[in-house]
Design a binder for these strands. Sequence first.
DNA 1: CTGAAAGCGCTTACAG
DNA 2: CTGAAAGCGCTTACAG
Lengths: 341, 341
Amino acid sequence: MAMATSKDVARIAGVSRATVSRALSGSSRISGATRERVTAAAQSVGYEPNVVAQSLVRQRSHTIALSIFSDGKNPLLLGGEPFYFDVLESIQHEADARGYDLLLPSRIYTDLPAYVRGLTTRHVAGALMVALRTTDPRIDALVSAAIPTVFVDVVAEGPQATYVTSDNIGGARQATDHLLHLGHRRIAAISGYATSLAGTERLLGYQQALAHAGLAVDPGLVRPSGFGMEDAYAATVTLLNERRDVTAIVAASDLMAVGVLRALHERGLRVPHDVSLVGFDDIDLCLYVDPPLTTIRQDRAAMGRGAVRCLIDNLIGGVHAITPVVVPTQLVIRGTTGPVT
Amino acid sequence: MAMATSKDVARIAGVSRATVSRALSGSSRISGATRERVTAAAQSVGYEPNVVAQSLVRQRSHTIALSIFSDGKNPLLLGGEPFYFDVLESIQHEADARGYDLLLPSRIYTDLPAYVRGLTTRHVAGALMVALRTTDPRIDALVSAAIPTVFVDVVAEGPQATYVTSDNIGGARQATDHLLHLGHRRIAAISGYATSLAGTERLLGYQQALAHAGLAVDPGLVRPSGFGMEDAYAATVTLLNERRDVTAIVAASDLMAVGVLRALHERGLRVPHDVSLVGFDDIDLCLYVDPPLTTIRQDRAAMGRGAVRCLIDNLIGGVHAITPVVVPTQLVIRGTTGPVT
DNA sequence: CTGAAAGCGCTTACAG
DNA sequence: CTGAAAGCGCTTACAG
């Protein structure tokens, strides 16, 4: 009943344990006949190398630590939507396909040295970090530690660390270009705060698109706001009080777009007839508002997949010149955008 | 830079490695002075026992394998709601608090013997299994394997295996009792199919409540249906065509209740004035329908917590007479129930 | 191509 | 209470 060990296999195949190891790990030079004999013996007793022992002797495992940093309840939902959950699912799927276990280490929320030691002592091959907060002491700890790390949606780089993110700039440009093509010229931006990466980058994309179209940015049309639905609602109310000439709005997120939509409706403005609107993220909620929201889709599956591949192939694989993974976005045209009238 | 080992600590403290191990693991009898000396030495070099080595020698780790079985995309959402995600979050939180790592093993979706061997070779202390399907060969494999296992929402028991589930019967009884107290007598049940545990148990609770109130179950008021929104919609349409005397309906899930609600609205029936309605689960959607849905709340956090505690304290802890964990439900009264008129 | 030996870092009977 | 020794199951230079 006890698990078969390499000793058992060696005995059956009539070879040494060293040979068993070589035959099964594949690489080393070994005679075809011996390999077959060992393989058959292994199969006959259902032998599978002890992962823990391998880990100890190799000083490294086929395990990736997954850390999720955030406060608040249900940190992985973005505006009530399981946004990061999709990313995680993709991470799990890709790790599985590559033969890597995923480890959610416990007791890592104490002191920093212990955090890093905890990862080291577990012999993880690398770490994946999904952080909803952009500042966390563990981010720096991980960057300076000699552990291959990929951050998701956190801009952090080091000799063994890089990150994956959506192409926020390109996405915002797609949104703005779409409106420009529809003939809009006075396009307002309900932008996130400049302190967040997404906020900054998306505003930048908006500005770039206008500049590329030969338009100056009208400061009165740029409205920073929090990322909440209510924040965007309030910002839109103010905007509409001050400016009646707006024909289109880009919001920094779908959730914010829902707030914008409500402000427009309350004002009696029809969407998209009077005002066009574009969101960002493509969360499920887009389908449930009326009209369904035109938005910029973040490819969550590609983010998760990209994070794992970058970690395994580049960082763990020892590739030089590691660059961040920037995942392209996609314009999804639904009901909130139309030609200027 | 290399991690300090017990050898380093032993040298600094002037003792043997055996003593270091004893001093740090706490339990063994050791002199206070030695313990202090060892602790200080350990602290000075930032020593932390190598988890992998411990795992190898103890033939067991502080790790719980977490398996999630399902097909379909986003298996952990229940009707578009991150139902199981909440459960997982609670599992993670509790495991962390207890000092257990969580492991999502890779390559476990192949053959059964390899699946079990994979867990054994990783020296996991136990396994937690969230299965959205009630039949899966791995369920049986895990039950018969000598690995402590707790299933979530799957009724499976063995010498080292048990499960956690909501009190479906009690919950359905709460729902029905609530309507009875409001004076309803002709209460219909849009029940899930009898092939699912939730469907069966919830129907049973409904029947028990009626029986307890001295009422016979009217077969014409019991409508089995699929668990989808559309299924429940269709079943309700049929029900209303055949029976005009219904004053209240219990649905086997919130998602189904939304379908019921639509059928009622289309029929021109006002809720709760003409017909009262109770759901089951308490997913977020309850708040977004009009009127907000009265329902039976499943305590997702308690389910996750209960699963981890049962696994660690009972199964791993070697307690005899393991019993399933049945988590109480709670009636949440919102806008869809009122007195019979 | 193959084996004997050492070692990964720890714990645990066994003596004392 | 403490240490020397053996061993968890594997891999990997080192010889041959």
